[in-house]
Amino acid sequence: MRFPDADVTTLDLIRHGEPVGGRMLRGTTDHPLSERGWQQMRRATEALMVNGEPPWDAVVTSPLSRCRDFALWFGEHHDLPVITEPALAEMALGEWEGRTHAQVRAAEEGEDRQAALWADPSLTSPPGGETLAAFDARVGDTWQALLAAPPGKHLLVVCHLFVTNALLHQVLEQPLSRALAFDLPYAATCRIRHERHALGETSLVEWIGR
């Protein structure tokens, strides 16, 4: 803690594990976790346990099944409240939804909009999908709500790759052109600590991508 006597809220973000069907551009397409994905999530959460017990007061989850199913199981298994937050759903990818990266590239006939999205997402959106500005705004509203009225001092947030990037963007405040700076593997975890203190409020990143 950087500020004496600060009121601290800690958010542990975890990207979902591998879904059924393997790697593809899912967006809001609702695929459940594969068995490997369940194993990845169990290992990742076990690594954050303290003396074999979960440190969290509550679990907040995306409504999509690759996040929600694990969150509900985890909450029931450890007697933790689970809050489903619709605004934590993954960025809508329009015509790319449910396709592999190779299928999208082949359909674009030489134009690689996927690469353009990662290079500068402020200038490129998936055809028929959500703009980064709109996506960042909805995740940002949820971030502010979690800080204003957190359901506990330590939260586990089960979400997605782009959502994790958007939450980190709230802390790092990098330009939207760099809002997708983190390509995190399945079940990667990040920790954000928010401190309210005599000088105001400060958000700090403890780690990214464990």
Rank of each mutant, 00 (worst) to 15 (best):
T202L: 02
R113K: 12
H77V: 09
A148M: 01
I14A: 05
T9N: 09
D5S: 13
E90S: 10
W38R: 15
M41W: 11
R36M: 14
R36W: 00
P19H: 11
H154C: 11
L80T: 07
A134H: 06
E85Y: 01
H16E: 05
D141H: 10
G22N: 03
C190W: 01
A149D: 13
D5L: 13
R138L: 10
Y186R: 05
T164L: 04
G110M: 06
A179F: 02
H160Q: 08
A92N: 13
L80A: 02
N51I: 00
T164M: 12
Q114C: 09
A137E: 14
W207A: 04
L72G: 00
V158W: 05
T100M: 07
Q174Y: 10
A92L: 00
M49G: 09
E53T: 12
Q144R: 14
A107D: 13
A188Q: 02
G17W: 11
L168G: 01
P175M: 09
Q40D: 08
G129H: 10
D57K: 03
D136R: 07
T124Y: 01
A145G: 14
G52T: 00
F3L: 13
V59S: 03
D112G: 06
V82N: 03
A102Q: 15
A116Q: 12
T124E: 04
S34P: 08
A179I: 06
A71W: 06
W38F: 10
G152E: 07
C190F: 01
Q170N: 12
A119N: 06
L167H: 00
L93F: 14
D12I: 13
T142M: 07
E111N: 14
G17Y: 11
V163P: 07
A148K: 05
V59C: 03
W143F: 15
P127L: 07
L80F: 09
E97I: 06
D57E: 06
H160G: 08
H160N: 08
T131G: 14
M1A: 15
D30G: 06
H197G: 01
V104G: 06
L11K: 10
Q39H: 15
A87C: 00
P175E: 08
E95F: 07
V104S: 04
D79T: 13
A188T: 02
Q144N: 13
L88W: 01
C190T: 13
L172V: 08
L117T: 00
D79Q: 14
G17N: 11
P81Y: 06
A137H: 11
G94E: 06
R105C: 13
L147E: 09
R210P: 06
E195N: 00
H160C: 09
F162C: 11
E201M: 01
G128Q: 03
L204W: 00
P86F: 09
G128S: 07
L184W: 07
N165K: 00
W96D: 04
D112H: 09
E18W: 04
A106D: 14
E195D: 08
A187N: 04
W56A: 05
C159G: 14
G22V: 01
T164S: 07
A148R: 12
A187I: 04
T84W: 03
V50N: 01
S125N: 11
R15L: 10
F70S: 07
G75E: 07
W207K: 00
Q103C: 04
M24Q: 14
L176G: 08
D112Y: 05
E97H: 03
H169A: 14
A187D: 04
T45F: 12
A137I: 01
P151W: 02
V104C: 10
F135D: 02
S125G: 00
T131D: 05
G94P: 04
H16Q: 03
A47R: 15
